[in-house]
């Protein structure tokens, strides 16, 4: 992937063009990772504004310095038991590529764990799990210090289902009649 080369330019720490950095976080004692270049910022949990008629994992919208971003509970998205939000609950603001545009979204996780630099050959393709965590949302698996880390494809995950942008043709309600 050509992305690899670009990353090493941006962050000098990466050794070879085939390696990438990942930020890992915890969900119910499982460790997941996202491409660190997609992470915009980390913030503590603050109450959100609920949006009616949304699936339970879309918690609402948040004011991120003037921009209004949706917040998604990854535990509930993955069908894990929900947990009370507390002072340690973290919202990771990620940049999601949607077609030609980029959307910022917040994902609620239990805690942030580590950053890893992974060579391409350290990542194994994901087996098909079935169930809620569809393998199409997963870039691959890796193990570090005997822990398995699931690397998540943020674009695939956060453009799916309710988060997908609906067909734009229905958007124009204003008719003009010549």
């Amino acid at each position: 992937m050509s992305l690899g080369a670009r990353q090493s330019d941006e962050s000098g720490v990466i050794k070879s063009s085939d390696s990438r950095q990942y930020l890992s976080f915890l969900l119910d004692n499982e460790e997941y990772g996202v491409d660190i270049l997609r992470v915009q910022e980390l913030r503590g949990w603050t109450p959100v504004t609920r949006i009616p008629e949304m699936p339970n994992y879309i918690k609402g919208v948040l004011n991120l310095r003037g921009a209004i971003i949706p917040v998604i509970d990854l535990r509930q998205r993955f069908g894990l038991p929900p947990r009370e939000y507390g002072p340690t609950t973290v919202v990771i603001v990620v940049k999601v590529e949607t077609g030609t545009s980029e959307r910022a979204m917040g994902i609620i996780v239990d805690a942030v764990a580590e950053t890893y630099t992974l060579e391409k050959n350290e990542i194994q393709p994901a087996p098909n799990f079935g169930g809620v965590i569809n393998s199409e949302y997963i870039t691959g698996l890796t193990s570090q210090d005997d822990t398995m880390i699931v690397l998540i494809d943020i674009d695939a995950l956060l453009n799916s289902d309710e988060l997908a942008i609906e067909d734009l043709t229905t958007k124009n309600l204003v008719e003009t009649q010549a």
């Binding site: 949006i51 919208v61 209004i68 971003i69 959307r103 988060l163 609906e166």
Partner: peptide, 19 residues
């Protein structure tokens, strides 16, 4: 008026949001 579409999508029943 802030758009909901920029980072999310259009939501039926709402024309936007504000802070």
């Amino acid at each position: 008026i802030k758009s909901l579409e920029v980072n999310f999508k259009r939501i039926e029943g709402f024309s936007g949001a504000t802070i």
